[in-house]
Each structure stands twice: as structure tokens, then as C-alpha cells.
């Protein structure tokens, strides 16, 4: 397995170089260093001297891909692309264009994102599986039809509606939890309850429909019939056998998501005043801060690759038939 992981990590290098190249090309296709300087300087009157000085100070005075003023290796290395890319692979994200340390910002902002995403993920997973099993238990009944109808309705409504409706109902009308805000430690729980509940609820429709179909597929298999033939109750069949075997396809979709959880949720964090990473990239794109954009795209790609590797590894634990070689 070790050799497999090493091989996958090596494959990741050209992928990350490609992602970085595309990010770089797309960003500078839309924004020139002069535009970036103007956006960052924020002055009412921006003079050419100010722009030049900002570019020199931030290294944006260099050519993008090829430095024709250099001759030997400097032709390619003394360029903005190389200067901005090389450090990324050692996870040195440097400073944002507004002068803040990106690593420090990511470290500070990932915890609030996790504080929402992790409980939402775990509670959501458990709830969806539990409800899906319950429906499978009553499959074909009126309860099954009603729940499936509700699931489709929940899926069809925008997440924004749940956020605003949740804030109005639970915070404004019934005064149960704060409308928005964040605090660290135990004191922060009251701020997390509503976003987590809304996160779980808004994902429940899609979740139970997916898991129900997985469990229904399992329930007609021979091992389930055998279990029933042995006289096991339906609950024991479902929770003891169907759930265990149904987890494999669930893992495919779930493990890959885990590393990216700390990247946060844009809308949820904006509405609930959670100081997470959700809006970090979008804000950076809007303010033309290439330092942050390249760091976050790179990090997102790394986490996605890690998620895929973790999924493969998890297969070997849950399905002894799978061997990584």
C-alpha cells in the first residue's frame, strides 16, 4: 500500500503544476498587475509612480512566463510564474497582496469553518442514514411515500431560504439562539446550533434519497434473505447486515469530502457571521488578490487529491476484496 500511496502522491505533482498554471493564466487574463495595484492601493488618484512602486514591492514587475531580459536559466526562472509557484510546493504561501500572512490567516480561519462543517457532516451523515434505514424498514408504506415526497421538496428549495427562514423563526420569532455571531470554546455552541441544524436539514432530502436507494439495493441480496431465514428481526437485519454492506458505496462519496471540510461554506458563513474560510477565496477574487487565490486553489487541489487517496485506502478496510497495488 505504501508504494501505491507514494505513486499517487507523485502523480499529484504534475496535476498540481497544471492546476497552478491554469489558475495563473486565467487570473492574469482577467487582471493585469496594474489593475491589481489599483485595487490594492484603493486611492482616489492612483499615479503611475504609485502603481510601479507597488508592483516592484510585490514582485509583479516581472514578466509573466518568459523573461526576455535574462539569458540562461533566468529566462524561465526570473518570472512571475516561477516566483509565485515554486514556494507553493513547500506550502509557503507567503503574503497576500494586502500584506497579511496567508498561512496565519488560513490557520486562524479553518477552525470556525470546521466548527460548522464537522458537526454538520457527522450529524448529517448519522441522521440521513438513520432516516434512510427507517424508511427502508417501512418501504412501500404511506410513511415511505410521504417521506420521499418531503425529501424531494426539501431538495427543491434553495439553501438560502432555510437560512433566512431559520433565522426568522428560531432567532427572531422564538428567540432561541442568536441570529449570527461566533465565539470560541463552549460559549460558541449557541452560535453553531442554528447553522448546523440548517446545514443538516438542507442536506437531508438528497441524503436520504441516496442512502435509501443504496439500502434498497442491498435489501434484496441473498445474504439479507439468509439473515431473515435465520429468523432475525427486520431491525437486526437492517442495522446488523444491510447497514454494514451499504457503507461501502456511501464511503465513496463521503471520505473524499472530509479533507475539504475546512474550506468552509460561503453562504452559511456569510449569513451567520462565521469567520471561516468560506468567503476567503471569493473575497480574494473580488479584490484581485492573487496571493490568496493561488494559495487557496492549490490547497483545494491538494485536499481533493488527499481525499481521493483516503477513499482508496478506506476501501481496503471496509472491503477485504480490494487490494491496493
Amino acid at each position: 500500500m505504501f508504494a501505491y500511496i507514494v505513486r499517487r502522491l507523485l502523480f499529484a505533482v504534475p496535476i498540481l503544476i497544471g492546476v497552478n498554471l491554469i489558475t495563473f493564466a486565467l487570473f492574469f487574463m482577467v487582471n493585469t498587475p496594474d489593475d491589481m495595484a489599483r485595487a490594492q492601493l484603493g486611492a482616489k488618484q492612483t499615479t503611475p509612480e504609485m502603481i510601479q512602486s507597488w508592483k516592484v514591492d510585490h514582485g509583479y514587475d516581472k514578466p509573466l512566463f518568459i523573461n526576455t531580459t535574462e539569458h540562461s536559466h533566468g529566462l524561465l526562472t526570473d518570472t512571475l510564474f516561477m516566483q509565485e509557484s515554486l514556494k507553493l510546493f513547500s506550502f509557503d504561501f507567503g503574503q497576500s497582496d494586502s500584506g497579511r500572512q496567508i498561512s496565519a490567516d488560513i490557520y486562524e480561519r479553518m477552525w470556525p469553518s470546521l466548527a460548522i462543517a464537522l458537526p454538520t457532516f457527522i450529524i448529517g451523515l448519522v441522521t440521513n442514514i438513520a432516516i434512510a434505514l427507517l424508511i427502508v424498514l417501512f418501504r412501500g408504506s404511506t410513511l415511505d411515500s410521504i417521506t420521499m415526497g418531503l425529501a424531494v421538496a426539501i431538495m427543491s428549495i434553495s439553501g438560502l431560504f432555510y437560512i433566512i427562514a431559520g433565522q426568522v423563526l428560531f432567532s427572531k420569532t422564538w428567540h432561541w439562539v442568536p441570529i449570527s455571531g461566533y465565539a470560541e470554546g463552549l460559549e460558541g455552541i449557541k452560535f453553531l446550533i442554528l447553522p448546523v441544524l440548517i446545514g443538516v436539514f438542507s442536506g437531508i432530502g438528497a441524503g436520504i434519497r441516496w442512502y435509501r436507494s443504496i439500502f434498497l439495493e442491498e435489501i434484496n441480496k441473498d445474504y439479507v434473505r439468509t439473515a431473515r431465514a435465520k429468523g432475525l428481526s427486520e431491525i437486526k437485519v437492517l442495522f446488523g447486515h444491510v447497514l454494514q454492506n451499504g457503507l461501502l458505496p456511501i464511503l465513496t462519496g463521503v471520505v473524499v469530502v472530509i479533507p475539504t471540510l475546512f474550506m468552509g461554506s460561503l453562504i452559511m458563513e456569510s449569513f451567520f457571521g462565521i469567520p471561516g474560510l468560506g468567503s476567503y477565496t471569493i473575497d480574494a477574487i473580488q479584490s484581485q488578490d492573487f496571493g490568496i487565490v493561488k494559495a487557496m486553489v492549490f490547497l483545494g487541489s491538494v485536499l481533493y487529491i488527499v481525499g481521493l487517496i483516503l477513499t482508496d485506502i478506506s476501501y481496503t478496510y471496509f472491503d477485504p476484496r480490494v487490494k491496493l497495488s
Binding site: H175, I179, L186, K190, I193
Partner: peptide, 23 residues
């Protein structure tokens, strides 16, 4: 469960459940 969590986090907050500030 939700209300248990709420009461834990309310400890140093003002009397209102929905207050975002400490007393």
C-alpha cells in the same frame, strides 16, 4: 440535546438565549 448544549454555552451570556454578547 440542543437545549442542553444551549444551556452550557449560555453560562456567561446575558439572560436571553439569543443574545450574542456576554452579560
Amino acid at each position: 440535546m440542543v437545549f442542553l448544549l444551549l444551556s452550557v454555552s449560555m453560562k456567561s451570556y446575558s439572560n436571553n438565549w439569543n443574545s450574542p454578547y456576554t452579560s
